[in-house]
Design a protein around this nucleic acid. Structure first.
Length: 842
DNA sequence: CCGGTTTGAGTTTTT
DNA sequence: CTCAAACCGG
């Protein structure tokens, strides 16, 4: 097999390839099939079958030669193959859900490398998330055999932005060791600014302004460019000044926020055409994933890099306009809709052959999304039609509790048929919906994992620890200093910090430097002075150790010496052990890095929690975080007007917002490979009060041919004209009546057995949280398994009054004991009934 | 400086 | 309703 990989100098960064660009025809030329053939003929010793994919004849030749085509092209369908092989000129790949989008991207990279078109270092490949970048690296690596280290420009928009900035920081007024501030830092900084302006920080919440800045930066706007109306809308009309002040403060801190990671490179390129030209020469091929999610700033960034003066624009954007669900945070669907205008002569390739779902699921999703007007229009299809395939099922429930109960029941039934929990997911519109399912699954002893929410590095203890490390590496990081100067408590309260802050600002020096000066004076009370002296001494010592001590060792030492570890060791709260565990994890993860500095860099951009693959558990997440994932069985609860589509989308966003909600519904349905169950309830508690609800309009937009209504639970009303609502609830059925439906009876009959089975034969119940970190009902971070400590046959080892600890609800007192079922008064969560295997003595 | 109490807000989330 | 942040009193 002559794949051609052997002779590619993967690690060679700077020079041009040996056989660079003459094969690049002018844009537009490749639109003609004949050009494709000519190119084929011209190719310098191309691997057989490559460079084809345009004309019919060329394709036929490719087919003829297929047995000699490189491995990595085998198994691609014609459209995928065309997307992989159309290397010259702009290409837009409209890849529907489950049509092999990632495969196309990765294979395309492999193809570029295999045909010696470019060095790995000459390919710019951009994704949105680290996860996507990682996956791409992995898969390219798999295709080309571990040479991905040679692809330095594969990453997220932001990580590539950082890389550019570190190289050219001085061009935008930074030094290359600038800090990256996360949302939390930004909000605290803005709050300081608002206060410094003498504004009421309650009337003008820092969070809100941070969101405004974020919005402006998403649109690529400098303070001078923001709309007058926007500027007036905040801080008594001083929005623009505040934005300016913010940017100045960032500069003096030598810091960037996330938006700057995109905007600074744009500014830099515009002000320095020679630098831009360098990158034009470097990036011979550009690939963009999830193009429908790009915002204006990212678009500008891309345009700058793609507009090469000489040679074709070899840019390939992959996306799906039907899966654009981030309009509310600045994504411009328009970017993908007008790709052909932006890149004249662009080739548009649609991938519509779906490899994921049944015909019913595709039929339902396709019919639904066809109700949107602003789309390019794709229809997914599959050949794999099986008469046994289940239709999409619509279920009705009385309220959200019944909904959760019934979904739990369905899951247990599937489980009894040997279905893996890992193959099932519950996808909700809003995170408050998760709770009901969690509660239910805890009671059932069903393993689940919650995905989403604050990341590992956003957890309190991680951020604190990171602030210490930041201070050691970057003594000028005032935000870090303020965060930990009194954590743990050292008697350095607001008054002291304020004094110090003022002292530092007056002299325009960092706070740590100010601290070492101020302790020489008598401006502070002796007590504070001594405490501050200790802090300064500590940091001096750690800074000295930075060069000599291994960084993990130093990190440990910092946390111990500062008293931070001790602080959590002395903390009696339920989450303290978890936090200590997280700190250990933090240190562990540092081992993979060369230095504390490089670790800090990664943590601010790249770090996130990993799922425990070994645990079999149902996934619970929002529809937004489900994008890109797939499951055998998907449950979609809460399809009610006001929740889905969400009321706010209906109120504020007009048709565009409604269409985005519909795309969200489309994303939800297309996550399912084999089974897709939609639910709506007629009563839901919102902000504490019960409201009766109408079924979602999206349900009425589904095609009857691919959908059935679950008779078991409803027994009232069917699917069809007039919706679902009246049928069931206009009859004024009493609450109890729904409990006599066949579905409920079955549930009752199964429940006891199921519970017993669970306890007798399974190892127990485990809960995993990916992301969520802080305390409260959203829970502490819990991973791994709790082993059930009793079965139903034995009397409970707990008695009334025992003090117990529950993995989700925290500490509480046993109020009632019935066999192995306990009623517990939890300190924070209130009274709950739980199986005793879930609790341990506190 | 700490802890209990009041108050207000309550889609979606990545970097 | 339920949470987190702000507030106030010891």
């Amino acid at each position: 097999m002559t794949s051609g990989f052997d002779d590619i100098p993967f690690f060679d960064e700077e020079p041009l390839p040996r056989n660079p660009g003459p094969r690049n025809p002018a844009p537009g030329q490749q639109a003609s099939p004949a050009a494709g053939q000519t190119k084929e003929g011209d190719a310098k010793a191309p691997p057989p079958g490559l460079g084809a994919g345009l004309g019919i004849a060329a394709r036929a030749m490719a087919a003829r030669d297929q047995h000699r085509a490189p491995d990595y092209l085998a198994g691609l369908n014609p459209e995928q193959r065309e997307a992989v092989e159309s290397l010259d000129g702009p290409v837009l790949v409209l890849a529907g859900a489950g049509t092999g989008k990632t495969r196309v991207l990765t294979t395309r990279i492999a193809h570029i490398l295999a045909t010696n078109r470019a060095f790995p270092s000459q390919i710019l490949a951009v994704t949105f998330t680290n996860k996507a970048a990682r996956e791409m690296k992995e898969r390219v690596g798999h295709l080309v055999g571990g040479a991905v280290e040679g692809m330095p420009w594969l990453g997220t928009f932001h990580s590539i932005g950082v890389k550019l900035l570190r190289r050219h920081a001085e061009l935008v007024g930074l030094t290359s060791d600038f800090t990256i501030l996360d949302t939390d830092d930004v909000v605290r900084l803005i709050k300081q600014l608002i206060q410094a302006e003498g504004l009421d920080d309650k009337r003008w919440p820092a969070k809100q302004f941070a969101a405004m800045i974020d919005g402006w930066k998403n649109k690529g706007l400098d303070p001078a460019q923001i709309p007058e109306g926007d500027a007036r809308a905040f801080a008594n009309g001083r929005g623009r000044e505040l934005y300016t002040a913010y940017q100045n403060r960032l500069k003096s801190l030598n810091a960037c926020d996330f938006g700057d990671l995109l905007l600074h490179p744009i500014r830099m390129f515009r002000a320095n055409p020679d630098v831009l030209k360098d990158y034009h020469q470097r990036f011979r091929y550009i690939l963009v994933d999830e193009y429908q999610d790009t915002n204006t700033a990212q678009y500008m960034w891309l345009r700058l890099l793609a507009q090469r003066a000489a040679g074709p624009v070899n840019v390939c954007c992959v996306g799906d306009d039907d899966q654009s669900i981030y309009g509310w945070r600045g994504a411009e669907v328009d970017n993908i809709l007008r790709f052909e205008k932006d890149f004249p002569g662009a080739k548009v390739i649609k991938l519509e052959r779906n490899y994921r779902s049944t015909e019913h699921i595709l039929g339902a999703a396709g019919f639904l999304i066809a109700h949107n007007e602003g789309r390019l229009g794709k229809t997914l299809f599959t050949d794999r039609v099986d008469p046994n395939d289940e239709k999409v099922v619509v279920h009705a429930a009385w309220d959200s509790e019944e909904e959760a109960r019934a979904v739990g029941e369905e899951i247990e039934q599937l489980q009894r048929k040997q279905h893996k929990l890992n193959d099932m997911a519950i996808l909700v519109r809003a995170s408050f919906q998760m709770r009901e399912f969690e509660d239910r699954f805890v009671t059932l002893g069903l393993n689940y994992r919650v995905i989403g929410g604050p990341r590992f590095y956003e957890r309190l203890e991680i951020r604190d620890a990171m602030a210490y490390f930041r201070m050691v590496c970057q003594p000028a990081d005032d935000l870090a200093f303020e965060r930990i100067v009194n954590t743990p408590k050292r008697g350095l309260g607001d008054t002291t910090v304020r004094t110090l802050h003022d002292y530092a600002r007056a002299r325009d020096i960092p706070m740590l430097a100010a601290a070492s000066e101020i302790i020489e004076t008598d401006e502070l009370k002796p007590k504070a002075r001594k405490a501050l002296f200790d802090v300064v001494t500590d940091f001096r010592r750690w800074q000295d150790l930075l060069e000599t001590t291994p960084h993990t060792e130093l990190a440990e030492q910092i946390l111990d010496d500062s008293g931070y570890t001790a602080m959590w060791q002395n903390d009696k709260s339920a989450e303290a052990p978890g936090r200590l565990e997280n700190l250990k994890e933090l240190i562990r993860s540092m081992e993979a890095f060369e230095s504390m500095r490089s670790f800090l860099e990664h943590v601010s951009l790249v770090m996130d929690a990993e799922t425990n693959e070994n645990l079999d558990a149902v996934s619970i997440m929002t529809l937004h975080s489900a994008k890109g994932l797939e499951f055998e069985t998907v449950f979609l609860p809460g399809w009610e007007e006001g929740l889905f589509p969400h009321q706010r989308a209906l109120d504020e966003g007009g048709r565009a917002a409604l269409e985005e909600e519909r795309r969200l519904a489309y994303v939800g349905i297309t996550r399912a490979k084999r089974r897709c169950h939609l639910w709506f309830v007629s009563n839901r508690r919102i902000h504490g009060l019960w409201q009766s609800t109408m079924p979602s309009r999206f349900l009425d937009e589904l095609p009857p041919a691919h959908v059935e209504v679950a008779e078991a639970e409803t027994s009232y009303g069917g699917y069809g004209r007039g919706g679902y609502g009246q049928s069931r609830f206009d009859k004024q059925e009493p609450f109890a009546n729904s409990y006599s439906t066949p579905g409920w009876k079955r549930a009752q009959a199964n429940k006891t057995d199921a519970t017993r089975d669970n306890w007798g034969s399974r190892s127990g119940h485990a809960v995993e949280r990916i992301g969520y970190g802080e305390s409260g009902p959203r829970g502490q971070t819990i991973e791994g398994q709790l082993v059930a400590k009793s079965t139903s046959n034995e009397p409970s080892k707990f008695t009334v009054g025992d003090r117990v600890f529950h993995i989700k609800f925290g500490n509480g007192n046993v109020a009632v004991v019935e066999g192995n079922k306990l009623t517990i008064d939890f300190d924070r969560a209130g009274q709950k009934r739980v199986l005793d295997g879930f609790v341990e003595r506190a």
